[in-house]
């Protein structure tokens, strides 16, 4: 990114901007994120136990259908236009769990349907979730490589 140096006048103005820029309600936002994020994870744990019991799976494997269920819930909330309203309250509490991943994929798919199924939905569906996958895979690649080399 081009980082152009600011001249003194711009520098001075940026200080003023900081002064007037309204600040987020740190405590309130953090509390809301804690409670809603905790709740989402609690529900996720509920599904893990549910699938472990119903499908007779070991805990570790039961998290697969649980994740899929949470994604389905996130997808439905997005499709019905509710997710963005809940997230305005919950913030990271809905974005950081897998529900947020679902929302970023579904909202992009939904938004670009008018541009066509191939060039719209197909191409844009990862426009928000793409970075997470790209960086996750690149990190995992090098982590795996280092692991394999030192073993």
């Amino acid at each position: 990114m081009a980082k152009k140096k600011l001249n003194p006048k711009q520098e001075k103005y940026q200080q003023k901007v900081k002064k007037y820029e309204s600040k987020p309600a740190l405590f309130k936002n953090a509390f809301q994120a804690f409670v809603s994020g905790g709740l989402v994870c609690l529900i996720g744990q509920g599904f893990i136990d549910f699938y472990a019991a119903v499908m007779n799976l070991p805990k570790k494997e039961a998290s697969n259908p649980a994740v899929a269920t949470m994604i389905l819930i996130g997808a439905l909330l997005t499709a019905f236009g509710v997710f963005d309203k809940l997230a305005a309250y919950a913030g990271a509490g809905l974005s950081v769990p897998v529900t947020g991943f679902a929302n970023s994929v579904v909202s992009a798919g939904l938004e670009f349907k008018e541009e066509g199924l191939v060039q719209g939905v197909g191409a844009k569906i990862f426009s928000l979730a793409g970075p997470v996958i790209t960086f996750g895979v690149v990190t995992a690649f090098f982590v795996g490589l280092i692991h394999a080399l030192i073993r």
């Binding site: 936002n29 499709a79 909202s107 938004e111 928000l128």
Partner: peptide, 17 residues
């Protein structure tokens, strides 16, 4: 929103400013 920022159904919190 969809041109400059995010899909309309994306659940992002808005900045107070």
């Amino acid at each position: 929103e969809r041109q400059y920022r995010y899909p309309t159904e994306y659940g992002g919190q808005r900045r107070p400013y």
